[in-house]
Design a protein around this nucleic acid. Structure first.
Lengths: 253, 253
DNA sequence: TTTGACACCATGTCATGACATTAGCACCAC
DNA sequence: GTGGTGCTAATGTCATGACATGGTGTCAAA
């Protein structure tokens, strides 16, 4: 019942790349994470303590600590002062990340496709102006799309972008996804604030998503900010709850 | 248009408590956060750089860095190497935290109340056993409650707890909430894994929540782990989407 | 005028060392 | 026996110092 003392195999850390561009703490975190996922470190087992681990690997304590902290933030490890570090029970689930639905589907092996319904430049109303931090009436690019996975409609996506992006190419967006097009323009997303709720479908949404009238939909409003802190996108999305849901891992600080 | 150079008023940092139990980085982070919230540091403004800030406050760079990093993780600041640190645009929203609905309602000033529908010890079925990492058939405490805010029903909460907690007092839970009772037993939650979705209400749920039949509900499944990494609670919750939603702030690493 | 080299700035990474705090345990005194 | 006391182990906090890396702007040469 008491936590098994567990030593990480040294071999896992033999090939640390000390000169490459990949930070050492990241390499360590990756290797520990892999050990957890493949069962080398079973749930509940204890990690070697920070200083000892650092000595064995020839790394300083801050580096080890940073690696472990990243895994704690991910919900894989739990630390207790005076006790040590243990692997959390329960199967690992990938949490929500700052990616688009397109990326998610690609990762899970489903074939995404997009139908563009609307792509127009319209003046911002009060709500959009507020979300994007632009003046009311300022031109914005308004998109409405249906996203499908393996040809089954999954969600209706409606997005607004500030004036700088009103020249985006609708065909590119339909083919590669909005986020990919923005990335290729040099925009890197850093922060997103999302609100997740639910409501009934409108008749149009029922048609688009191929569900019955007044079906329950999962909704998500998102405002995304780039690395200079500027709002670059506001979106209102509706998902078929039988095909999509959100996973979140919370860690008490 | 270009980010205003901004200097934090030194007065904000004059009363740092260097001997007390509150970490210095936390005190710094709190003060910066307050400056952002009250408008002293407007959206888009630039922070003084790390080293200078450290010198002015008589603190080391790691301490300052830790404080800033916490605010970056909260989605309040954005950092760019070679550029500096800026305040993110957009109003601040409190994200999901590892708290119970009870705590949430208390914080927003609404008066929560709870009706206990079921409180019984039952054997774990396959799904519950999997979530709690116990054997199938092991005794678990099964709760079903309705949570109200200002006497309006907000959610139906169904929870399962492992054998150690089968002796919990139903009256205590109804009065103080499940999480408060667990805290008073010395259990501290550290990690929770949630899945958020939507579905239609059952007839019973429609009655309990005072909504029409087949209304859209927001659902959340949560498994919570204590500071030793052990699963201590699995819950399936349904919320009225007109009264409750989830906020999440994501930060790209 | 344009372009390349270079310096500067600010954050990113890493090492070393020290002390504080907490949990668990063994031991000793009462 | 029981309870306090102190030791040990492990993480938490903080300081100092160094170098790397990416972004920006300047200045001079082509």
């Amino acid at each position: 019942m008491n936590p098994t003392e567990q030593i990480l195999p040294l071999s896992l850390f033999m090939d640390l790349e000390r000169t490459g561009p990949i930070p050492l703490y990241f390499q360590v975190a990756t290797r520990i994470e892999k050990s957890i996922l493949d069962g080398t470190l079973p749930a509940g087992s204890r990690l070697e303590n920070e200083v000892a681990l650092g000595e064995r690997l020839g790394l300083s304590r801050p580096t080890i600590r940073r690696a472990i902290q990243d895994l704690v933030d991910k919900g894989l490890l739990v630390r207790r002062r005076g006790i040590g570090t243990q692997v959390v029970h329960g199967q690992v689930t990938r949490g929500v990340e700052l990616t688009s639905l397109n990326d998610d589907l690609n990762r899970t092996g489903q074939k995404p496709s997009t139908t563009m319904l609307t792509c127009e430049v319209i003046p911002a109303d009060a709500k959009i102006a507020e979300e994007l931090a632009v003046a009311v009436g300022a031109p914005t690019l308004h998109l409405k799309r249906v996203r499908k996975a393996d040809n089954v409609p999954v969600s209706v996506l409606e997005n607004w972008l500030p004036e700088d992006f009103t020249d985006l190419n609708p065909a590119d967006i339909a083919e590669h996804g909005l986020y990919a097009v923005l990335r290729s323009r040099g925009v890197t997303m850093r922060v997103a604030k999302q609100r997740i709720g639910a409501r009934k479908s409108t008749n149009q949404e029922s048609d688009l998503l191929d569900v019955e009238k007044h079906a329950a939909l999962l909704t998500m409003d998102r405002t995304a900010f780039d690395n200079s802190g500027r709002a670059v996108e506001f979106g209102h999305h509706c998902y078929r709850p039988d095909l999509y849901s959100f996973s979140v891992t919370l860690v008490e600080k």
